[in-house]
Every structure is written in C-alpha cells, then in structure tokens.
C-alpha cells in the first residue's frame, strides 16, 4: 500500500511536469492550429540556461529559473516570428516540417554549445521532505514543488484566459481567427503572446523535469516533449483543463505501468492508453467534437 502511494505520488509529480509542457502544446495548437514539435527542445534549452546560471554564474535557484524563463520566452517569440509567421497561410504539413527543422536546429545548437556529455543537474530546491508512515513514505522536496508549481500555474492560467483582456483575445483567436481580427484583435500579437507564455512554461517544466531526473543532454527534451504532446491530445488538444488532466493521467499511468507491469513497456503502455481513449473519444477526453460541414 505504501509503495503504491509512493508510485502514485511520483506519478502525479511526473504528470505535473507533463501537464505544464502539454499546456504549451495545447495553447499553441489551439491558437495557431499547428503541431509545434520544437516545444520539447525549448524545455531542454530552459534547463540548460538554468543549469548554466546556477553552475557558472552561481545565481540562486529562483533567479536561475527566472533567467531561463526570460531566455525561453524570447526564444519562443523569435522562433514564432522568424519561422512560423511567414508560413501562416501555408499548408499544414509545411509548418510541421519547419517545426521539425527548428527542433533539429535547437538540438544541434545545444550539442555544439554544451556537447553531448550529460550534465548533472544540481538539486535546485531544498525545502525539506515530508515523511509519512514512520518514514516509509518519503516525499521529496522536488515532488512537492513540482505539484505546487503545477497547481499555481493552472490557477494563474485559468484566471488569465478567463479574466484578462489578452486572455480573452487568445480564446477569441483560437475560436475563430477571422472573426477575432474583425473585432479589432491583433492576431499576430496574440499568437506571439501565446508562444511567449508557452515557452516560459516550458522553461519551468525543464527545470522541474531536470531536478527530478537530473541528467541533462541535448536530447533531454524530445521524449518528454512527445509524451506531453500525447498528453495534450489525450485530454483534448486545444483545451487547457484537458492538458492538465491528460498530463496527470499520463504521468500516473507511466509510473504505475513501469512499477507493476514492465519497466520496458511503460512508454508503450502510455501510448496504448492514448489509442484506446481516442477510439472511444476521437477528440480526446475534454475535446470539442469535430463537426462535419458539407
């Protein structure tokens, strides 16, 4: 029972990271209708920036995270402006391939700057552990922080999209770009803002991911990126609560699957669950049903 609880909490922690990454995917998809495959690599860049800020500049962890967020936000906006904006009217597949090109670019730039040798990410947060059941169940500070960060981000983002003017503009653009433009919303600026928020979240996710799994390589972001993307689809792509639920469920399924079924098949299990869910709910758990128009 205790071990189950431990796995479950680890699952929530990993799922929280997936959820934060998936938020970036889902917001960008909702508004720009594109699969941003480079998102996973923004996570990696964020983690490297935080790593450098802490190890070389000796900045305190919180400042390092802030630093990573600023760099990633700029990176996200620059990528959107240079690579995706010119393709706004182009075929969907062209945008997808460009996103893949950006992903290769980020990975290989990271490879040249930081080399392929894995870096050991320093333990960022030490706010103490929680010990339960006579010390049988230890919840590490990283786990607590990841979960807390996830809840805070979720609440902040929900408030942002429902209360602020910019957030409402974002929802309007994702609903109907043409109509939003007619209402006087600056579509380009709104899309840039979405990329900025998504990339800042990616930086946080990168730091959280690497403080739980402390090896950092240029390819660190790609697998969590794909899984978070899966999580976003799982919850219904384009839906913010969907990304949250999808991420959490995926993390829990992965950890429990690895613990109780097979270590090697943990990833396969995640994808199998996705397929089963999509068969019964073709637009994901909270996705809007696809309407067919003649």
């Amino acid at each position: 029972m205790v071990s189950f609880l431990r796995f479950f909490i680890n699952g929530i922690s990993l799922g929280s990271v997936y959820a934060i990454i998936a938020l970036g995917y889902t917001m960008v998809y909702g508004i720009a209708k594109m699969l941003n495959f480079a998102h996973g690599d923004v996570i990696m860049v964020g983690a490297y920036i935080a790593f450098c800020a802490m190890s070389y500049l000796n900045l305190p962890p919180l400042l390092a995270v802030l630093c990573a967020m600023v760099v990633c936000t700029c990176l996200g906006v620059v990528i959107e402006g240079l690579a995706y904006r010119p393709l706004r009217q182009a075929a969907k597949l062209a945008v997808l391939i460009t996103a893949i090109g950006v992903s290769y670019l980020l990975q290989n730039t990271a490879l040249l700057i930081w080399s392929s040798n894995p870096k050991v990410f320093p333990s960022v947060f030490n706010v103490g552990q929680i010990r339960l059941f006579d010390g049988n169940l230890v919840i590490s500070s990283e786990t607590i922080l990841t979960i807390v960060a996830n809840i805070v981000i979720m609440i902040a983002l929900t408030l942002f999209t429902s209360r602020t003017k910019m957030g409402k503009a974002m929802r309007a653009v994702s609903e109907d770009r043409g109509a939003a433009e007619l209402m006087g919303i600056n579509v380009n600026r709104t899309i840039s803002l979405t990329f900025a928020i998504g990339s800042a979240l990616a930086a946080i996710a990168g730091v959280l991911l690497c403080s739980s799994y402390p090896t950092l390589q240029p390819t660190t972001g790609s697998m969590p990126g794909i899984k978070a993307f899966t999580a976003a689809v799982f919850g219904g792509i384009g839906s913010i609560p969907g990304a949250m639920i999808g991420g959490l469920l995926l993390g829990i399924i992965e950890i429990l699957g690895k613990a109780y079924i097979s270590t090697e098949l943990g990833d396969a299990l995640v994808f199998a669950v996705l397929i089963v869910v999509l068969l019964f709910k073709p637009a994901g758990l909270l996705g809007k049903p696809i309407r067919e128009k003649v």
Binding site: T230, L265, F271, I275, L278, I290
Partner: peptide
C-alpha cells in the same frame, strides 16, 4: 483510419513507438 487529421497523426506516432518498445522486449 477511424480518426481524422492531427488525431490520426498522433496515433500513428503512438503505434510507431509501441512497435519499437515491444520489439525491445
């Protein structure tokens, strides 16, 4: 093939990964 568009794409991706994971075992 019951799915459409991006959902179809992500499921083919998922199957590709499942095949690789199972072959590994």
């Amino acid at each position: 093939l019951r799915l459409r568009g991006d959902y179809l794409a992500i499921v083919t991706l998922a199957f590709g990964e499942i095949i690789r994971n199972v072959l590994n075992c």
